[in-house]
């Protein structure tokens, strides 16, 4: 029975001792110890996190570089393509223009030739007409110099007229 009857004195001293211990240790031991451990853990965590962040940034940087390179390549490609297009277009344009001007020249030349030809033909015609009139004049003069011949002509003419 003695064993399980708590003594007042010991309860008192235990309570006092424990509370003193709790107070002193809480203030001068647990607080600095847990604080130090927490700070250390926090700093380790921070270090790990910053390393992770650096790594991620590094990755980002490489990805960026890659992207920029890609873009540059694409741009060059586009520029080349454009240049090629311009070249072909220019060539085509030049060709077209040349052809057009040639055509125009040909047409002009043809027109000039045509008009020259027309003028030449007209001159020829007029010369032929005047020549034939002259000849006709001479022939008529010679034909109509004697009476026989005049008669014969009338007869021929009349003969032709009946034939008609």
């Amino acid at each position: 029975m003695d064993l399980i009857t708590p003594e007042l004195g010991l309860i008192f001293w235990t309570g006092i001792s424990f509370l003193i211990l709790l107070f002193i240790l809480g203030k001068f031991a647990w607080k600095p110890i847990l604080g130090a451990v927490n700070t250390r853990e926090q700093s380790i965590k921070d270090a790990l996190e910053s390393a992770e962040a650096a790594k991620r940034e590094m990755e980002n940087l490489t990805a960026d570089n890659e992207r920029i390179l890609q873009e540059a390549r694409a741009e060059r490609e586009a520029m080349m393509k454009e240049a090629r297009e311009i070249k072909t277009k220019m060539i085509a344009d030049a060709k077209d223009e040349a052809k057009e001007s040639a055509d125009k020249m040909i047409v002009q030349a043809q027109a000039a030739i045509e008009s020259e030809k027309k003028a030449a033909v007209a001159e020829l015609k007029s010369q032929v007409a005047s020549l034939s009139i002259e000849i006709a004049e001479k022939v008529v003069k010679s034909e109509l110099s004697d009476t026989d011949k005049q008669l014969k002509l009338v007869e021929d003419m009349l003969g032709n007229a009946t034939l008609n």
Binding site: L8, W13, W30
Partner: peptide, 26 residues
């Protein structure tokens, strides 16, 4: 009875040991 008995004495001893250990730890 608030005597310093054997157990109370031992408790004070433990108090001293614990304080010594953990104050030096801190």
């Amino acid at each position: 009875d608030f005597s310093i008995t054997k157990n109370v004495f031992s408790m004070f001893l433990s108090l001293a040991i614990i304080l010594l250990i953990f104050l030096s730890t801190a």
